[in-house]
Design a protein around this nucleic acid. Structure first.
Lengths: 140, 140
DNA sequence: GTACGATCTCTAGCGACTGGAGAAGCAAGA
DNA sequence: TCTTGCTTCTCCAGTCGCTAGAGATCGTAC
């Protein structure tokens, strides 16, 4: 249960092998230990970190935001006193995403419900997610 | 309230001018009307569509998924009878994203709360979002 | 009419992967 | 021991989704 090869890590996380090497290259993953024959050896900690990165990317966070979140985790005491506003900004961003996704979810659900009753369903997905009220990003 | 130039559309939506032209090029936006001097003229409908695209991209949806959602909207009756399973798949995807974001939100909130009390806060963001139980995508 | 900003097309670059070429590692069977 | 075959190595080129110039044209305002 200790070390695993890059192929096994890829299979467990769903992240492709070149992508794992790319994350190492840009510093999202630390350089792993190497075997005698120069193969990368990963532990469980790196596996969890990689799954976190994958989910965060999948949710639309940019690499730089993920790097900040990971840095807060790597340096918990510095995080407490220096990164509070950063954490609050991330929280607001997360809440905005949740709100927009829930709006979208309600509309898609409504479409499915209407369809299941053989009613003609009018799609309001655009109108509903096009509402800019929930958008936190100021477009300068 | 009728037609607007591309610059105004960009200012209203927060989508950059080259990006708007790019969306037209790949078929996410329909080719707009043109003025006598060949400038693009947009209406409110296209504006809403563009804001939808922007939010969906920001939430991590790929262009192809957005295209499917827009197609369902453009052809509501076909959507009812042919795209039900597609809509259900999108719904499951959306719910997975919401669940992961709420997990992340709780942990970031907890970090902020602990920090505000000057306690040493340990970051569990990785452990918490690294949980694969909520991940709907099978990694074959 | 001319100055100047907005828009046009075209092309090249960037961020975040993704895939291939060719060489080397390594476990398993003849 | 050799060799077949799969994995991994590095390097590099390509893709997707934008993004930023270059140079020409439009179009309003003096």
């Amino acid at each position: 249960m200790g070390d695993m090869a890059i192929g096994e890590l890829a299979a467990l996380t769903g992240v492709k092998i070149p992508t794992i090497r790319y994350y190492e290259q840009i510093g999202l993953l630390p350089p792993p230990a190497r075997s005698a024959g120069n193969r990368r050896l990963y532990d469980d900690r790196t596996q969890r970190r990689l799954v976190f990165i994958r989910h965060a990317r999948d949710l639309g966070f940019e690499v730089e935001a993920i790097r900040q979140l990971l840095d807060m985790c790597d340096q918990p005491d510095r995080s407490c006193h220096q990164a509070d506003s950063l954490a609050r900004a991330h929280l607001a961003d997360i809440e905005s995403r949740i709100a927009r996704l829930e709006t979208l979810r309600r509309e898609v659900q409504r479409m499915i419900d209407e369809c299941s009753q053989d009613r003609i369903c009018h799609c309001r997905v655009i109108e509903v997610l096009a509402d800019h009220g929930q958008c936190l990003h100021e477009h300068h």
